[in-house]
């Protein structure tokens, strides 16, 4: 009786230690929101931040129409050399950041091709 009990116990313990590969678990390697969706959400947020409902006067005609006031002169925007340098640096940074962000967002699509 004891031997039988021991044998069953051993068999159970062995059975417990038996490992079997049932299925390969999926590893999450990307965001829940995929690249295009996330890009659309980011763009919408950026638009909301850029234009916070400020009806600025852009042109002389607009000022005349909205206020009945005609500006004496309209001075177009021209960047000084210093401003141009700053703008060029900013554009370069935005370009590099955008490319990096795109690469990160579409990494799961691009990885199989690499």
């Amino acid at each position: 009786m004891t031997a039988l009990h021991t044998a069953r116990h051993l068999l159970t313990s062995l059975r417990r230690r038996r490992f079997a590969l049932v299925a390969i678990a999926l590893v999450v390697t990307a965001f829940v929101l995929q690249g295009p969706k996330l890009a659309v959400i980011f763009a919408a947020c950026a638009l909301l931040l850029i234009d916070p409902n400020r009806p600025t006067i852009h042109t002389a005609e607009q000022m005349d129409r909205e206020l009945g006031l005609r500006p004496v002169v309209s001075i177009p925007h021209f960047a000084s050399p210093a401003e141009k340098l700053r703008t060029d640096r900013l554009h370069r940074f935005v370009r590099v950041a955008s490319i990096t962000a795109l690469l990160v967002f579409f990494a799961d699509w691009l990885l199989p091709f690499l």
């Binding site: 006067i57 042109t59 002389a60 006031l69 005609r70 500006p71 309209s74 001075i75 177009p76 925007h77």
Partner: peptide
């Protein structure tokens, strides 16, 4: 009135 940085 002077409109600076005008679009026109």
């Amino acid at each position: 009135v002077v409109l600076n940085r005008a679009a026109d």
